[in-house]
Amino acid sequence: MFRRLGISVYPDNSVFEEDLAYITFAKAQGFERIFMSMLEVTQGKAAVAEKFSKIISAAKALSYEVILDIAPNIFDELQISYDDLSFFAELGADGLRLDAGFDGNKEAKLSFNPYGLIIELNMSNDVAYLDNILTYEANEPYIYGCHNFYPQEGSALPLAFFNSCSKRFKKHGIRTAAFVSSQVATGGPWDINDGLPTLEMHRHLPVEVQAKHLFATGLIDDVIVGNAYASEAELVALGQLNRYQIAFTLDLLPTANPVEQEIVLENQHFRRGDITSQMVRSTQVRKDYKQENPPHDNEQIFQVGDIVIGNDQFGKYKNELQIVLEPHRDERKNKVGSIQKDELILLDYIRPWTKFRFKS
């Protein structure tokens, strides 16, 4: 399934002109969907319609997919029924995210709404919610899944629980989404905002590292920045991500010679299928590069995340690239750089035959 990037806007807590500038810049960076919260609406139906239709119209002109986040109280506030979704269709939305669930049959019926609105389900519960809905013969192409975000420090999901929840959706081929948190944005739906990630381990990481991690799990198709407004630098960094394979950010040593630099940065790497626990081995490069490689930076104990390349003392293994997984010493290998500390979490996703790249 194609992977996408998304942003969030909060029309009840923002100014239209600022929202417009934000979504326009994000679109230029390759963003394709918008999460738009309606949980905070307190005005009447006419005022809500005017405000939301204006920003949705602008988003649709930029070819965004727009999903509105709704809860039962919104229907009461706007005096509309779950049995008639015409209000949201008239706003121009592509779908509705149900913050709260029903009995399964209700969601299945909603997926057959006459307006073709996508029904996005809450993924952040490790129960058979989706299975129940599908039992009622839901319209599967119009069912998405999206995790929650968590404004309070310490309240977001642990990784193991996130994995379990996500696998319930992924096994059915449902499009999935989760949130990452800008490190500078302050906007959100509530008065508490310690960041808006899905995973607690992400809360204080650079936003592009969070996104790399979510994509690396293989469980998430759409990565959405939960808080607004992410900085232009953050949006650019996200837009430049390789969404389909891990591209480690590398601190390259100045002593790395030109051949080593080319081996590291200019090649498609993959881990051998017959793996070892001590290192990730990229062996094709040793077959492609026969140049001499004198020893340097080869007498220390290599640490987890170090990038080493076989030197002239390593015989047939000269110019083989390895990522260190367990500390060890071997003078037949030159250290050429290290994976940045924040990205060491990505090493868990380099499995047998996994493709990966480096950038400096």
Rank of each mutant, 00 (worst) to 15 (best):
A108E: 05
L110R: 03
D99I: 08
L91W: 01
P72L: 11
L110M: 14
D99A: 13
Q79Y: 11
P72K: 07
F88K: 01
L91K: 04
R97N: 01
A71Y: 05
R97P: 03
P114K: 14
I70D: 00
D126E: 15
I67V: 15
L91C: 08
L121M: 14
A128Y: 14
L98Q: 06
G92M: 02
L117N: 09
E90N: 15
E77A: 12
A93L: 03
Y136V: 00
A100S: 12
L110V: 08
A100P: 00
Y115F: 15
E90S: 15
P72W: 03
D84V: 10
I67M: 02
S111C: 09
I80P: 05
G95Y: 10
L96M: 01
E120W: 09
A128Q: 13
Y115I: 00
A128M: 06
D99V: 12
Y82V: 10
R97G: 01
L134G: 06
A108H: 10
L130Y: 03
A128H: 14
S81H: 10
L98H: 05
Y115K: 03
D84L: 08
L85V: 07
Y136P: 02
I67N: 04
I67C: 05
Y115P: 00
L130E: 10
L78D: 03
I118Y: 12
F88S: 06
L130K: 04
G95D: 10
I118K: 10
L96C: 01
I118N: 10
I119C: 07
F102R: 08
Y129D: 06
A108T: 02
E137K: 15
S111I: 13
D69L: 13
F88T: 02
P114W: 05
N113I: 00
D83N: 13
D103P: 05
I119Q: 06
I74V: 14
A93T: 08
Y129T: 12
L91D: 03
L96R: 00
Y136S: 12
G116R: 13
M123D: 05
D83K: 03
I70F: 00
N122Y: 09
G95A: 09
L98V: 10
S81Q: 13
K109H: 09
S86I: 12
G101V: 09
Q79P: 00
E77N: 15
S86L: 10
S81N: 13
F112M: 12
E90Q: 14
A100N: 10
D94Y: 04
S124W: 05
N132M: 12
A71K: 02
S81V: 08
P114L: 10
A93W: 11
T135S: 12
F112Y: 15
L68I: 09
N122F: 10
Y115E: 00
E137Q: 15
L134W: 04
R97H: 01
I119F: 04
K109E: 10
P72T: 08
R97V: 01
F87H: 11
M123W: 08
N122L: 11
S81F: 05
Y129P: 09
P114T: 08
K109V: 15
L91T: 08
N105G: 04
G116F: 14
S81K: 08
F75V: 07
A93G: 01
S81T: 14
F112I: 09
G101Y: 11
T135P: 00
Y82M: 09
I67Y: 07
F102D: 01
A71N: 02
Y115Q: 07
N122G: 11
I80C: 04
D131L: 07
G116Q: 11
A89M: 05
A128R: 15
L91H: 02
